[in-house]
């Protein structure tokens, strides 16, 4: 069946595949050229070329502080989620304790529980704990949402670690901490770093929980976009969308490259 690409059903399959690629990518990418339009409205194909909407985004304090807030929250979330997620992966992959399977499901459950429920729940609790509307509150919330991605990436690389290397280190006199630092950690580092990058993206793009946990004085870029997308029709929103997309894509590609890396020696 190897040389049957010209058969009608194969052609149909390829056509359908091409259509699906178009459906997956084109609608989103259309925003990119439109953000460089010279006209005052979003038209396709864009009229002329101009970076004025990017200038407007950078000079408008609402957008620019939103950008800075998003970057701060995403960075702190990546750090916290990587630390907690790595611990959780070590504990659930290597650990033995009653209820381990249940715990693994709990760790993954932020992916599956409808985000609006998480949002109103966190809002309800964080208001009482004086965490709502603060950067700390949002980082804690995003960390819970981002942890599954770290756990999954670290657990995957942890399962490929050859335990004999650790035993060899221990038999040569290294204590558990030293064995972890010198043997295990370097071996799982690609997974840890990829997990951290995915955590960054999760926070960077998060909007529903952020809508509830931010205030008019402290907003992230997606929340600002959500507030404006229903009223403003000028192409600044397209410039913001392109910016969000560019950051996400860069970090995603970075994560995919990092994960392919052979473990550091």
């Amino acid at each position: 069946m190897t040389d049957s690409w010209r058969q009608p059903h194969r052609l149909l399959l390829v056509a359908l595949g091409a259509l699906t690629v178009f459906f997956l990518l084109a609608p989103t990418l259309v925003v990119v050229p439109m953000s460089f339009t010279a006209s005052n409205s979003l038209t396709f194909p864009p009229e002329g070329f101009s970076t004025r909407w990017y200038e407007k985004m950078v000079t408008d304090p609402q957008w620019s502080t939103g950008f800075v807030n998003s970057a701060k929250v995403a960075f702190l979330t990546a750090v916290l989620a990587t630390a907690l997620g790595t611990l959780a992966a070590l504990g659930t992959v290597r650990g033995r304790f009653p209820g381990r399977n249940g715990l693994q499901l709990l760790i993954l459950s932020p992916l599956i529980v409808p985000v609006i429920i998480i949002a109103i729940g966190m809002f309800s609790v964080f208001v009482r704990w004086k965490l709502a509307g603060s950067i700390a509150g949002l980082v804690l919330a995003h960390t819970a949402l981002a942890m599954p991605f770290v756990v999954v990436n670290v657990a995957t690389s942890l399962r490929t670690v050859d335990r004999n290397l650790e035993l060899a280190a221990q038999s040569l006199g290294a204590g558990p901490v030293r064995t972890f630092r010198r043997i295990t950690l370097p071996l799982i580092l690609p997974g840890v770093m990829a997990g951290g990058l995915f955590a960054f993206i999760t926070s960077w793009d998060e909007v529903v929980v952020s809508i509830f946990l931010t205030s008019a004085r402290f907003r992230t870029l997606p929340v600002e976009m959500w507030e404006q997308v229903r009223q403003v029709v000028d192409p600044t929103v397209a410039a913001v969308a392109t910016t969000l997309l560019a950051v996400t894509t860069t970090i995603l590609l970075l994560a995919l490259v990092v994960r392919r890396q052979a473990p550091a020696r």
């Binding site: 033995r96 715990l103 459950s109 932020p110 966190m122 819970a144």
Partner: peptide
């Protein structure tokens, strides 16, 4: 093997974190 080993201790902090900032909100709702 044992019912609990030392690796399990590492999971305590993340469990506590998810408990406080993820499960408690769901229970409160």
């Amino acid at each position: 093997g044992p019912i609990v080993n030392r690796w399990a201790l590492l999971a305590i902090l993340p469990i506590a974190f998810l408990g406080a900032f993820f499960l408690v909100p769901l229970v409160v709702v």
